[in-house]
Design a binder for these strands. Sequence first.
RNA 1: GGAGGGAUAGCGAAGUGGCCAAACGCAGCAGACUGUAAAUCUGCCGGCUCCGCCUUCGUAGGUUCGAAUCCUACUCCCUCCA
Length: 417
Amino acid sequence: MDKELSPEVKQEVERQLAILQRGVAEILPAADLEKKLIRSVTTRKPLKVKLGLDPSAPDIHLGHTVVLNKLRQFQDLGHLVQLVIGDFTGRIGDPTGKSETRRQLTEDEVKENAQSYADQLFLILDRDQTEIHFNSKWLSPLDFTAVVDLAAKTTVARMLERDDFSKRYHSGQAISVHEFFYPLMQGYDSVALESDVELGGTDQTFNLLMGRQLQPHYGQEEQVILTMPLIEGLDGVKKMSKSLGNYIGIQEPAAEIYGKAMSIPDELMVKYYELVTNFPLDQLAAVKKGLAESTLHPRDAKMALAHRITAMYQGNAAADEAEAGFKRVFQERSLPKDIPSKTIASTDLEDGKIWIVPLLAKLDLVASNGDARRMVKQGAVKVAEEKVTDVDARIEVTEGMIIQVGKRKFAKVMMGE
RNA sequence: GGAGGGAUAGCGAAGUGGCCAAACGCAGCAGACUGUAAAUCUGCCGGCUCCGCCUUCGUAGGUUCGAAUCCUACUCCCUCCA
């Protein structure tokens, strides 16, 4: 660091750097971030920190929060966040999705999705330090001349550096020309907004760098790239994503968030602590040590993690309740507090009895009658705390009777007409 | 414009006339165990009125006692050459 700097500035920059470096995968290049921070601190001008969002999938899950938490840290340090809704990009189609022709979103849909995004994002971000932009604003007006001009700023060889492209190229798979435009468009967003920093997952590195490459051509200083690790989903292997169904949505019920968090593999706990919570780093070191030396029970560490995550999005009280429910069901093996009620029509009964197989189906506890048979055969079914293993069993149902399939599915029977 | 390859259950991938409701892997579900919905092990994993029957192997026809497997047309995808 420059020695002409006042100790105050120096100290402040160091403080900010320490916070911003937490959990990041890469800062490209690290020296530039420091340089920008020094300038920001001395001139008291916030950095403009950009994040691009896909307008078609407005359900935020923990995977997204890795990046969002980092943005929040920038805000806490006084910086400005620029969210870019990729409505233009979304209108053209999908870059890698081959067969799935993505339907064009209408203007209204884009607006609606953006609103839904905002509602969720501001659970994490500070509204007052956030700008929302739509990239169609500057991408739509570009004419072909401008596009060619933009395309001339990079080369095919450079494009083929992208892992995805080079793999497909060498294995003889198709790459459509327009796919080259996605990184360019994203890069141009940075030009349009004069971004100082752009965030993204490590899988976005190439696209992020494109902005850095383009900015000097438009007389701007290059943005700094900050990539965050991708977080594995519940299976512990693949990255968390909605389409893989291995995600924890931040708007899910507390019990779901808590339970799902409890189902992550042990090995992932520390990473989750680091990336999806604001757990203090020095305390995290203690947790790590405790786990390594077996002085801390992994289950307890995970429960604390699950509680923390739940509390972040559903509040402390809800987290307490979720935890209590979890203990009740899984540690004490007793019934949960809230069991969904389902109605059984009296016309389905014969002498007050009903065959177990359709009963389970009617209660939505199984996918099909075949599934019901399987569950019964496997000893997964309990009626009023009694295990039922006879597929032909006739059950005498009574109002308020509890039926259970497996460990997690319950229903309370209500009698209807 | 020409040549070739391919479309199989949620996904990936075998099968190329009967032993195919279709191997195997992943995902999913259940049981046991435990430290939790971790890990591990075991089982299940198209539908039904389930020792039997029905509908599935891109779509529509056809050959055959019998087809995911052979033929015809169509649709879609991919590669190579120009």
